[in-house]
Nucleic acid binder design. Structure first.
Length: 641
RNA sequence: GGUCCGGUAGCUCAGUUGGAUUAGAGCAACAGCCUUCUAAGCUGUGGGUCAAGGGUUCGAAUCCCUUCCGGAUCACCA
């Protein structure tokens, strides 16, 4: 008991993570990387080809289109194996025939083709690429789908802190994932409501309050200069320290009286005066004792002020915040309703249970024998309130993977109770952030504090860029702002690039990298492009909205356009898979591709005016798309660094 | 023990509902490239039994089965 309470197990967003048992994609994205219209044309071209050549009515899904491997000539590749059987010919022959058909019937798109084994490689015409680039440029929100009145309303719950201690690295992962997910879901054409359920009541709060009363001497955030959440966290730790001392004392006494050690420990945990006092305080709180309530309100306000600062720095926000103190009684009614309908049953001791053995699960307690609610009951109550407030079509809970079982059960219960979104609720289950020595443990002082971490990252970024920024004659204020964007960009990218389901490792000894596959790498590329665009403006080079179709473009350049266009599928995929890391990977690939181009080609130095303008347009498009992608992750782009 | 999730290079991670005789990045190591649009960059070298075994098929890191290892969870805690 001591351990759990000391760890403040209550809150959801804590240091854990993983698995997605209930992620349910709705709607299949197109495969491949060619971009909708171009890809569509080829798919229907192939369909027409197999119909004409072999009399086969192929479904679009049978046409497997993929990006051509680098070692072969071409942009898009059709896998012909699925048609070999009907055609009764060799894969090579089938490839040749389909390729020729496309060349004859879709020459505006397909310029050339070659066949290697069962793979038909298509070379797309330059004009198509230019058109694609023009399309990308014409759309400020390229790849985004605008929500309409008919769009489903998706509610995303994330963060969900306890109010007895400051946010730590585990919360950071939760918050960054939740905020990114909200943007990604919204960019895929859904209405989104971001919500937060604050665990503002319970024994853990009472511990902080009690310790503050006993040892605080009236200390406030103002008198101490501490952030409110840290102040309260300190008293939580203080409680723990004194409580532990009391326990040790008692154990000695009990053992001296002849009790076995284990038994003595158990008894001490319950009999220590401090914990008894805390429980008394909780009872007073529940009975609306004015003094306890007033203290509780005051201390929570301190914590919220602290959280607000942290949230602001992280760049996360909520549309609607629920407080457990206001919702924890709500679930009872629903449970009673379910009891009447026979979904649940009452035991002899008066407790209420749900029997889920038919679903392959256990029996689950919903109301204690004294009639009070448990965690599950509260989530049912919160669901009820939320559904009263919003016409929810889909609910996503961003909660650590340690609670997989809880959400599996919740889904079944909500479904039984008639919530239409209950059955398909998504538990976005993410993995733990581990330290080299294992889990974070507040009692062992190994917790990585969110505020400290962000400050350290910004500081590192400032140090790393000091020389360069001085050279760029940047003001101190500007330099600080760049450092903020870069430091936080590094942190956010570091966390978001890892598949959310997996546990991830954070080593506080090694600072987060600014080189390689990192946020700053991507930001740097963006800044370089902005620099070029500024110089272009200085030279009065006009960048047209629409490029003429007669520019000759190189392979590297078509690859870049192809990669730009792949943002569409990356975004859609991230939306159906609930995968911020997919956006990270995409941004990295695009950036890496651009850096190679930047290195091998000159833009402003190009003497052919048409090419120069084309490359400027291309660079501008890369900056736009990369900024859109990173924006989804909550990462800001500095225009110089 | 039941259930769920993971296991890919020394380290941290990708690998798009199975696809191209050589499974990719980054870090770390080593070697190159700044009088030329920002070197937080680019290029190259070394580094792998995709935990192990079996199966499915034209084709498997990817799907199925078994085993091994790690994690989570199965409370009148939240």
């Amino acid at each position: 008991m001591l351990k759990q309470e000391a760890e403040g197990h209550a809150c959801r967003g804590i240091n854990t993570l993983i698995t997605s048992t209930s992620l349910g994609p709705d709607g299949r994205p197109l495969r491949g990387l060619g971009g909708i219209s171009m890809e569509q044309k080829i798919i229907s071209g192939v369909q027409a080809a197999v119909k004409a050549l072999y009399g086969l009515d192929a479904d679009a899904s049978q046409v497997q289109l993929q990006k051509t491997k680098a070692e072969f000539e071409g942009h898009l590749t059709v896998v012909v194996f699925p048609f070999v059987k009907v055609a009764r010919k060799s894969p090579e022959q089938v490839g040749q025939e389909i390729g020729q058909f496309l060349l004859d019937n879709a020459s505006d798109v397909v310029a050339k083709f070659n066949v290697v084994k069962g793979f038909l490689n298509l070379v797309i015409s330059d004009a198509q690429w230019i058109q694609l680039l023009n399309n990308i440029n014409a759309d400020d929100k390229f790849g985004f789908t605008q929500a309409t009145d008919k769009s489903p309303l998706v509610m995303i719950e994330y963060s969900s802190p306890n109010t007895n201690k400051p946010l730590h690295l585990g919360h950071v992962r939760n918050n960054l994932l939740g905020a990114a997910l909200a943007r990604i879901v919204e960019a895929n054409g859904n209405k989104v409501v971001k919500t937060n359920i604050v665990n503002d009541r319970g024994i853990h709060i009472c511990k902080s309050m009690l310790a503050w009363l006993k040892y605080g001497n009236g200390e406030t955030p103002e008198t101490s200069g501490k952030k409110g959440d840290h102040l309260i966290g300190d008293y939580y730790v203080a409680f723990d320290k004194h409580y532990k001392a009391e326990c040790d004392e008692l154990v000695k006494k009990y053992v001296a009286e002849g009790m076995g050690e284990d038994e003595a420990k158990e008894k001490a945990k319950q009999e220590a005066p401090l914990i008894k006092e805390a429980h008394e305080m909780l009872v007073k709180w529940e009975n609306n004792d004015p003094e306890v309530r007033a203290l509780w309100r005051k201390m929570n306000e301190w914590v919220y002020a602290g959280f607000d600062e942290t949230y602001k720095m992280m760049g996360v926000s909520f549309d609607k915040i629920y407080y457990e103190s206001e919702t924890y009684l709500e679930g009872k009614e629903k449970v009673m309703e379910g009891l009447e309908k026979g979904f649940f049953y009452r035991r002899d001791d008066n407790s209420v249970w749900a029997d889920l053995t038919a679903e392959g699960l256990d029996e689950k307690l919903l109301l204690r024998s004294d009639g009070t609610s448990v965690y599950m009951t509260q989530d049912i109550g919160t669901a009820k309130l939320r559904f009263q407030d919003f016409p929810i079509d889909k609910m996503i809970y961003v909660v650590g993977n340690e609670q997989n079982y809880h959400f599996q059960v919740l889904s079944i219960l909500l479904d039984k109770l008639g919530f239409k979104w209950g059955k398909d609720l998504v538990h976005f289950s993410y993995g733990m952030v581990e330290l080299p020595n294992g889990k974070m443990k507040s009692r062992e002082g190994t917790v990585v504090d969110a505020d400290d971490l962000m400050a350290a990252m910004i500081n590192d970024a400032y140090t790393a860029s000091a020389d360069k920024l001085k050279k760029a004659e940047m003001s101190e204020e500007e330099a600080r702002e760049v450092a903020r964007k870069v430091g936080l960009g590094a942190l956010k990218y570091f966390i978001l690039k890892v598949d959310a389901r997996k546990n991830m490792l954070f080593n506080p000894e090694e600072s987060i990298d600014f080189n390689g596959n990192t946020g700053p790498f991507i930001q740097y590329t963006y800044a370089r492009i902005q620099s070029i665009l500024r110089k272009a403006a200085e030279q009065n080079i006009a960048i047209p909205a629409v490029l003429p179709a007669n520019v000759e473009i190189s392979v590297k350049e078509t690859e870049l356009i192809q990669k730009l266009n792949a943002f569409t599928t990356a975004l859609r995929q991230a939306g159906t898979d609930y995968s911020p890391s997919g956006i990270c990977n995409y941004c990295y690939e695009l950036t890496k591709e651009f850096n190679q181009f930047y290195h091998d080609f000159t833009i402003l130095g190009e003497t052919d005016e048409n090419k120069k303008v084309f490359r400027l347009v291309l660079a501008q498009a890369v900056a736009k798309v990369v900024s859109l992608g990173m924006g989804l992750l909550g990462i800001e782009m500095p225009s110089r660094m």
